[in-house]
Amino acid sequence: MMILKMKKEDLPAFLDSVKEWGELWGPVKKGEKVTYAKVDALSQMDLKATRTIIPPKKFLYPQRFTMFDFDQDGYVERKGDVPKRILFGIHPCDIHGILIMDKLFLENYKDPYYAERREKTLILGHSCIPDDKCMCIATNTDFIAEGFDLFFTDLKMFYLVWVGSTKGHDLVRMRPDLFSRDLDKNDILNYTEYRKWKTAQFKSNVDFTGMPDVFELGYNSPVWDQLGDKCLSCGQCTMVCPTCNCYNQVDEVELGSLEGTRDRFWDSCMFREYSLVAGGHNFRDKRADRLRLWYTHKLQAYIGEFGKPACVGCGRCVATCPVDINVVTVSTALKEQEVGK
């Protein structure tokens, strides 16, 4: 790992230069919210924004895309239509989310579609200021040490820039004049100060310790039914969660032929159809069962397997669910055995 220093006023010039590698994307205002959009320059981005509506997973496995083209002779992998992209302004929680996705899609039967997009997408992270919905401190995802190509920490006067990959290093080498390695005592003090400051900014005091046990104990809790009565089965929580990966697939054909495409699109375990098997048996017919699966996956099962939650604390479920079902309300309800208002 290498840490470099950059003057803040040099960032626009740097981003301008890296566009030579690929399209530049960054957080851009959309109404009251933010979304990653293609931009020409830093000036179009909103770096103060906390979370985008959909996490950067949309770049690595889009909402809907074509896996294969087929004709009478068989299936041909669709590849090569993925543009090279540089994503600027990704926050630590979302990079942690990408690391979880990497594990799922790249290990044990590597998914070539994810792999190609991951390969062609550079992650340029950026430090952030938590708002009232951020809880990455509770999931231990408030800082990030890997998974990015470059990471920019805003220390007011300048940036500390972590170089996380050889590709990141290549970008630096496009404009070596903008970076320096002269780090002194003050930089260290500034950085430790920054970490303390960030930690003090969190307003949410949610605590996930012990959740696996609480889930186990609360498996039969009526709290699940109460939550199930409220849930709209709208699927929004799944679409916005950076660690939800479920998908469905469908074959479509051209009119008048048996040639066509096999497409993949985002699915949600909140839907009734999700666990339905032929003959009509449904393993999770009740909304309560589906909610329990979702939250068990985030806060129990994944911890059991990998020692950390599958929730990266981004707060999107909090900022999205119309009926206020999210990691905070669900874990609190389970602990207190009461669904809050």
Partner: peptide, 19 residues
């Protein structure tokens, strides 16, 4: 056991049971 399956290779999530 039978579960709904869309991928067969641990990606689509449909057949998940706990971990």
């Amino acid at each position: 056991l039978e579960r709904r399956m869309k991928c067969g290779v641990g990606k689509c999530g449909h057949c998940a049971i706990e971990y």
